[in-house]
Design a protein around this nucleic acid. Structure first.
Lengths: 338, 338
DNA sequence: TCGCTCTCCGCAAACGTTTGAAATAATACT
DNA sequence: AGTATTATTTCAAACGTTTGCGGAGAGCGA
């Protein structure tokens, strides 16, 4: 009663032939006479027949669908990843189901359940900030569903992954500040349970060490959003900690810091040079424009999807997992240049 | 060979009972003995059984999935709409398939085909900038699949829709500038072939007329992005057009204008008051923060989805379509307040 | 006329699940 | 013991497709 959509059976009934003949006629099978083919194709076109993808999925045990678990699509970076994923998937005839975890562990677990229940052929995951238990990912693997992590990967979990070289990018960002002669550089760090948070901090430290600068604990502050940055800056100013540079774990944090400094009369980049991370829509519209790291979201999406499709098609039982590292590059703008 | 996922049949075989018994045991059917239920549930849990949603969809001719066609998720507004959609859909036990049209008509047509082929139970659409032929939407309707438009609707197409009152919002935005005593207010307008562009201009004009202010053609400038705004402002300054207010068709335009004014030494909001449209991530982080119109993307998503679900459940054959108008409201921030 | 080869088509089973109806087994009642 | 009742389980069909196999009919050579 529901779906008014035409089926092969409907066509068969109408033409007084069997469903199998219709099926074969539609795929131009040599066994079927030209006459029959013509009749079938004509009626199919006329009645706007669309093969029922659900029935196909069931029959072929392949849904031609890939699932994506993503923290939050509101971020420019993640939505560009999705665009990359979609483009590659569509070209390969695959559909995409996107699930937001909203940075919640629970939602992420539900998401994987949903995707498995819908028999997606493969899953792309970027883990939520909360996630520290990885059993749900094991479940995916137990069910032999190909899995590729992108950007936010699980430390120590042997799997395909595509990431940006956060450490190197953070190193370059910090080095860029050092090269401009800055010596007292603060890092606003992300949560240290995420690999990206750790790597960015390590890159910062590496650059400092390499330049023979001391690494002070009070220069590493956990602040990864606009508001926390504001508070952190106020604390710095109150404590009269002298600094001349800031490398922030993401752009929003950098911008929050920059504005707070500016409101207190501190000149950017004159007195303090600032570099963000994860180049988005924001960095180009601040004043001064913000030096930042381009994470190549779109490219990451395409590469991750290609890896996944490759796994889907060549289903080896014992794959050796690959890690693809994109080198992010620094986009130098006004906020850091003297 | 593929999906290693456990099925009801597997459980039945293992327990040497029939699939129907397993099915009933899993749903706690009274016909099944406690003993059997226990055995089934135990094995199901142990082997991590997930009902095959694909088979279910086929059987029940309902996929419990809704399809969403969206121009581009990179925009804050659209991604908040998606969040609203997802939250309502999930609560109702529905999945969501998101398709980006990327503002392309062709892609939009393919998207509808894909969604129909996958037998989604309903479709939410915001049309692309390119779309001027609506046959694909008729096809959706012919197939009796419920359809709700959100934000970008099809003029003259009788259907369920949820939109914001752009005209009213633009009127309020302009009136807000007038109430602060500003009399020479410019409008940076969007493309006039889109309804939203026209409505926002009309709201601006209405506010001016109502206040007895003259509406000058040279005060209405087509500029709807950061760069065009920059150029438009430079032209204004060069021509020494005296103004004291600006209402822009979107935030990015407002910000482009604001920064250009500031660079030329003009004080915002002191000399010129600025109001944007479509409250996003940007408006809170500019300096001064930007007065703007909150379009309630999340709410729009929830309402559109509720309408759609309602249609899905009560399938009347001859529905009378509804239009829901959200009144967008002005978020007053620093850029407009004297 | 028989047998062989083509050409074209239909049957039936399968994918995983649900569900009305029928079957079986166990128990109760007379 | 015979029958009715209840409890528990299985059968079979269906959702829309695909596909191996078998079959009908035609054409043809011997």
């Amino acid at each position: 009663m529901k779906s008014g959509l035409i089926t092969i059976k409907d066509i068969a009934r109408e033409l007084k032939i069997s469903p199998s003949t219709v099926s074969r006629a539609l795929k131009n099978h040599p066994d079927i006479s030209e006459e029959t083919k013509k009749a079938v194709n004509e009626l199919a076109r006329k009645s706007n027949y669309q093969p029922n993808a659900v029935a196909l999925s069931l029959k072929q045990r392949r849904s031609n669908t890939i699932g994506v678990i993503i923290p939050e699509i509101v971020h420019y970076f993640f939505s560009s990843v999705i665009s990359g994923i979609e483009d590659v998937a569509y070209d390969a005839g695959f559909n995409v189901i996107i699930c937001q975890s909203n940075e919640k562990y629970n939602r992420e677990v539900v998401n994987t359940r949903t995707l498995l229940a819908n028999r997606v052929d493969g899953i792309l995951v970027s883990i939520s900030k909360e996630t520290s238990d990885f059993d749900h990912f094991n479940k995916i693997r137990e069910n032999q569903v190909p899995l590729v992590f992108y950007d936010r990967v699980v430390p120590g979990f042997d799997a395909d992954q595509v990431i940006v070289d956060d450490l190197e990018a953070a190193y370059l960002a910090t080095k860029h500040l050092i090269d401009a002669g800055r010596k007292k550089i603060v890092h606003f760090a992300g949560p240290q349970n995420l690999l990206i948070g750790r790597h960015r901090k390590e890159g910062y430290i590496k650059a400092l060490r390499e330049a023979g600068l001391e690494v002070r604990d009070e220069w590493i502050i956990e602040a990864d959003n606009f508001e926390k940055a504001r508070i952190a800056v106020l604390n710095i100013l109150e404590d009269k900690i002298q600094i001349d540079g800031l490398f922030a774990v993401n752009d929003l944090t950098a911008i929050g810091a920059m504005q707070t400094f500016q409101k207190k009369g501190i000149k950017i980049p004159g007195q303090i040079g600032i570099v963000g991370f994860s180049d988005g829509r924001l960095s180009g519209i601040t004043d001064p424009t913000l030096t930042s790291v381009d994470q190549h979201g779109y490219e990451m999406g395409t590469i991750a999807t290609e890896m996944l499709l490759h796994r889907i098609f060549s289903d080896e039982s014992n794959p050796k997992y690959e890690t693809k590292v994109l080198n992010a590059n620094l986009i130098v703008r006004e906020s850091s240049v003297l």
